[in-house]
Write a protein that binds this DNA or RNA. Structure first.
Lengths: 146, 146
DNA sequence: TTATATGCAAAACGTTTGCAGCCAG
DNA sequence: CTGGCTGCAAACGTTTTGCATATAA
């Protein structure tokens, strides 16, 4: 296995997470690292087919599970599918009802907590989901879909 | 089909929603109507087996889809499964990492919107998801699970 | 050298669909 | 009477699993 500079970096990241730097894992991490589209395992698999025609679903799923456990990626269950978010800093999501795109929304400083929560519940993570129409889809006629 | 007073009420509700008041639907609506546990289709199905040994999954799913379209129930995708919430008033959810219970959190007057959203996104629905530990589980040793 | 990861295939899981017959309206 | 609904079973899409083989460290 031959790695270029970037790949050596990715390999280092993987090993730092206690994972073996296999070519498949390096490719998966490289593919999702800066991807703001919240891809599904399927999407990643298809994207990597060209490079690794023999790669199996299982490897993609295993790797994403490993990266999740290592805290390098955050799974989000949206509808029936699991999407993966390389942004592990707490934040919210804006989801377009029309085109389905998911965009990150930085968490403000305010904790986004309604006073009504209370009652002994210890909050560890807060996620806001904002559903509506993105700017692009607002310019079209369509009102909702998918 | 013979209906008692409560069931006549449920039947009326169903017809008002443009749905036929079949015994199965009356039972499903009655079962979920005041259920704060956010049951899955599975859970409802099992709960109704006793009363309708012949009832099929399809009927439960069809009915829940119909009730959703009629605005009597709100589906929520949590983890990989779909739960159904009879509370259709906008509100948030507190989910216990340990026992998995989902409790409704009334939406405060404040819109729960971070300033950072903007950028042309038209927000139609906001849902806050608060993950942590419920009061009951905080009293036990366990820290997380499921 | 060896524990870990891989590819493959099959199974599991929740959900959806097609269809013949049934029954609420 | 008739269209919407039912039960059944099979199909679906996504994810998980078991196992023999390969490979990173």
């Amino acid at each position: 296995m031959t790695l270029n500079y970037d790949e050596l970096d990715l390999a280092r990241t993987l090993r730092a997470a206690g994972l073996r730097a296999t070519p498949q894992r390096v490719a998966i991490l490289r593919s999702i690292e800066h991807d703001k589209s919240h891809p599904t395992a399927q999407a990643l698999f298809e994207r990597l087919r060209a490079e690794f025609p023999a790669m199996s679903f299982a490897t993609v799923y295993n790797t994403l599970a490993a990266l999740t456990k290592a805290g390098r990626v955050q799974p989000m269950h949206l509808g029936t599918v699991t999407r993966f978010d390389p942004n592990v800093v707490p934040h919210h999501h804006a989801i377009c009802d029309v085109c389905g795109t998911v965009r990150d929304v930085p968490a403000a400083d305010e904790p986004l907590l309604p006073a009504s929560l209370a009652e002994g519940f210890e909050v560890r993570r807060v996620e806001g989901i904002f559903r509506g129409r993105c700017g692009r889809c607002r310019k079209t006629r369509r009102t909702s879909a998918r």
